[in-house]
């Protein structure tokens, strides 16, 4: 029984991974791509690891749980670092964007 539930959870995880990767290909600029990729791939991989925990348990399950917690903590941090690095290295937002308070504030600092 637990094996079937595990496989179902893993399938959900793979589906979210697929959405995230479609977002990575389709969305227009780096910040939007980071949004799609980070959210969907993080949850998708966590669901795969959770499926491993449900499927087999024991030592493998404990390691899967640790790995899931680790990914849940580090993946958003990596996304902040990348977004900040991209903005500081001068990548512009997509032309359809509405506002960019970060760039406005940085220019204000330069004038002062």
């Amino acid at each position: 029984m637990s094996e079937i539930i595990g496989i179902v959870v893993i399938s959900m995880g793979v589906a979210f991974d697929l959405f995230g990767c479609i977002g990575l290909v389709r969305l227009p600029d780096i910040y939007n791509r980071l949004q799609g990729a980070t959210k969907c791939v993080t949850l998708g991989t966590c669901l795969i690891l959770l499926g491993v925990l449900i499927h087999s348990g024991g030592a493998m399950g404990a390691k899967a749980l640790l790995c899931a917690i680790f990914i849940l903590l580090t993946s958003p941090t990596g996304a902040h670092a990348l977004a900040r690095g991209a903005h500081k290295s001068g990548v512009k937002l997509w032309e359809g964007s509405v506002m960019d308070k970060y760039a406005d504030d940085k220019e204000g600092e330069l004038d002062r």
């Binding site: 979210f16 389709r26 969305l27 949004q35 799609g36 969907c40 937002l93 997509w94 359809g96 970060y102």
Partner: peptide, 26 residues
């Protein structure tokens, strides 16, 4: 909220016209 975020991203990505209106707010 994490699950809602994933369905939100899936909706925006699979929609043919991609209903996005991005920007950086403070």
């Amino acid at each position: 909220y994490v699950f809602r975020a994933n369905f939100d991203v899936a909706y925006r990505v699979l929609h043919p016209e991609m209903p996005i209106r991005p920007g950086i707010v403070k």
